[in-house]
Amino acid sequence: MTSLNNASAAAADAIAEEGLIGDPVPLWKQTWKRLLRKRSGQVGLIIIGLLLLIAITAPVIAPYDPNDVLIGTEHVKRREAPCVHLLGCDINRPQHIMGIDGNSRDTFSRVLYGTRVSLMIGLVTVTTALVSGVLLGAIAGFFGGIADNIIMRIMDVILGFPSLLLAIAIVAVLGPGIVNALLAISIVSMPAYARVTRASVLSVKTLDFVSATRALGGSPARILFRRVLPNALTPIVVLATLGIATAILDAAGLSFLGLGAQPPMPEWGTMLGTEKDQVFSAPHLVFFPGIAIMLTVLGFNLLGDGLRDALDPRLNT
């Protein structure tokens, strides 16, 4: 009997916690709580938190300026292997925990500053793709007809290309460079947002609460932004988080090929690309930037997975 009571008490607690009894708990608070309960959410948040910290404090924690050529100021050789005092490197030699690159710069400082570049790339591309994709999708779903057909067929064509390939083709025409690479990646990731938004708009635009707003004289913009789009928020948030991961990976790929960020910008893909032929003699110059890309992408992928689970209404207990 006691165990039964305990069980029902626990169930009641769980229900109360999810906001089904008592005061309603805001969706974001619930999501946050569920996110923190998931392992993928925890790890993702920790990784991204650390990266943000590094990006903000880069000038303080980086031992050198990322573009400082150290030949002449210090006794170092080009592409010198890492020297870590704690691991037995001679205490009299300057410490470079990730070694020296092909232009005699401190790789560690460059990797730290690279965090800023990569996070910026992820945020800028996803914001551009999201805003344009959501607007196009909303227009297509809301107005239907010719607008819908034209917009969605264009999106189909963009999806007809393998994404990185279309980005490469766009950069080939616009010319290599970080801005063009960001533009290209934004264009290729736009259709996903347009499709999701259009689908949610179509599913709610005939519902009573939307008609009610229309009956009360709400403008189309108000209906769209206050009534329709909030319903599309959940899939878009998940998509955007995973989209940051893809954008960072694709941008690194473009930069690796020499089509994205140009030297001397401390971008991880560019760092890898310029030293790729030296991998047999100086593997540290390839190893560390690659690990940095992988950790960043992993962080956003895990957070995206965690958010998807946390926001999934079917998993509500």
């Binding site: 990976l249 690659g290 992988m294 992928n301």
Partner: peptide
């Protein structure tokens, strides 16, 4: 699998 999805192909190739 999570690490694999996050791996840059070119980096894995070089390594």
């Amino acid at each position: 699998a999570n690490v694999g999805i996050s791996m840059p192909v070119f980096w894995l190739g070089l390594m």
